[in-house]
Amino acid sequence: MPSATAVTRGAIKIDDVVKIYDPEGAAVMAVDHCSLDIAAGEICMIVGPSGCGKTTLLNAIAGFHEITSGRILLDGEVLCSTEKPKAEPGSDRIVVFQNGALFPWKTNLENVAFGPIMQGKLSRVEAHEKALSMMADAGLSGVEHNYPGEVSSGMRRRVEIVRALMNDPKVLLLDEPYRALDSLTKSVMHEALLEIYYRNKVTIFFITHDLEEAIFLGHKVAIMTTRPCKPKKVLEVDIPHPRDYSVLTSKRFRELIEETNEAVHEEALKAFAAGEKEG
């Protein structure tokens, strides 16, 4: 992974994390002694059946939910632990949500410029200038002054990713961002994401249940067990970055799919048998 070595910040260490939901005494274990190391600047794909507890892990890193025990570190600093179960949400870890969370009442430009203005890092004018140039780089020229509701869902995802990057985060947390997109749009979005990534190297924690997507994008693919969630198999993808769509038809890509398909399928069957619902 030569491209990942240049980045010095954004290493995540998930150390023996347990999350037990306890609605009215009926303890449900969502995450079971999960440990995972993600190097700085790495794209780590988390693959698992729907409802397996992947999002629980993401929410713990983002600081939206508490963990029960264990700890999560970012660049050696404890985000949350058994003693301090909930991390502070911060602009070093920005989430791109499953169904998108662009503010519908703000134009795309205002959305993108939101973070730096909130943090007082840039003035309104400076933030708008920077947002314009970042949007132009991401192929979003022309929709700056539209509302999110006026552009396609693929476009909205890109705006949201640019909005996240404007905060100069150490980690980008993507929660099945392309789930609702059709496969053609998805393939465009994959290349767009990689392009954005090559320009702004950050650690990416990417949740998906699409194995091809995972191997195509990731440096590392962690296949999770169904609830309770922990890594079943961690795969280092040895296809060099930068990648483009020709990778999909390469021999190595097919081999990696074959190597992992069974593990994923096994968990999917388990999830199906357990009657796990979508989401």
């Binding site: 983002a62 600081g63 949400p89 503010f103 703000k106 939101f114 909130m118 943090q119 905060n167």
Partner: peptide
């Protein structure tokens, strides 16, 4: 999600009231 996003991006309570709850 709007609250979570705004909070992650460094919004204060007042910002959240003015820029999320109000609109």
């Amino acid at each position: 999600r709007y609250f979570q996003a705004a909070q992650s991006m460094g919004s204060s309570s007042w910002d959240i009231f003015r820029r999320i709850i109000l609109p």
